[in-house]
């Protein structure tokens, strides 16, 4: 068992454990903090795959910016068990069915993944490094990349319009 494997198992347990805590903890602030821990674990996995750029961008964008905004909103709303609205029984039922459907889709999608097994690149791979990632993004995937940036722009404009409305 090499140190990479030890780290892998540690990060995996951490990721799944804190992901479970996100949905089970009563306090929404704890949920957000566990979500951040999950992001950290996933970033650790990226580093194990030698995808340093992805790891750090994951941290900056998700843990550093988006989660701060989540925390912002939750802290300002001051959610706790007393203010929690009574959940409809049917709503829970619908949620279960929706979750089950998602599981089915995931199973169906991942079933084929097994056939084209390629061992994950450990330490040696350099796909995740900045240079290669940049070249791939701006050569092969330049159109989807630009389209997604236009999507972001339109989302931003939409946010501004909503904010101006009062």
């Amino acid at each position: 068992m090499s140190i990479t494997q030890i780290l892998f198992w540690f990060l995996t347990v951490m990721a799944i454990g804190s992901a479970l805590m996100v949905i089970t903890s009563r306090n929404p602030v704890y949920s957000v903090l566990f979500l951040i821990a999950t992001f950290f674990a996933i970033s650790g996995h990226y580093i194990l795959l030698n995808a340093q750029f992805l790891a750090i961008v994951n941290l900056i964008v998700y843990a550093g910016a988006i989660m701060v905004l989540f925390l912002f909103v939750i802290m300002l709303m001051n959610l706790n068990t007393e203010t929690e609205p009574q959940k409809n029984k049917w709503l829970k039922f619908a949620g279960t069915i929706a979750g089950g459907c998602l599981l089915l889709v995931m199973v169906a999608a991942l079933r084929d993944a097994d056939t084209k097994t390629t061992t994950a690149l450990m330490k040696e791979g350099d796909i995740g490094l900045v240079q290669n990632l940049g070249k791939t993004l701006f050569k092969e995937y330049v159109v989807p990349f630009e389209i997604s940036s236009v999507l972001f722009l339109s989302a931003m404009v939409g946010a501004v319009v909503l904010g101006k409305k009062d």
């Binding site: 602030v29 903090l33 951040i36 340093q52 750029f53 750090i56 961008v57 941290l59 900056i60 843990a63 550093g64 910016a65 701060v68 925390l71 912002f72 802290m75 490094l129 900045v130």
Partner: peptide, 25 residues
């Protein structure tokens, strides 16, 4: 000497917000 040095700094700095936010809350 990681190949994303500056981004690492940014990542860590952006984490620094949590110290203030969690403490304040």
């Amino acid at each position: 000497d990681i190949n994303i040095g500056i981004l690492y700094v940014f990542g860590v700095v952006s984490m620094g917000v949590y110290g203030i936010m969690i403490g304040g809350w």
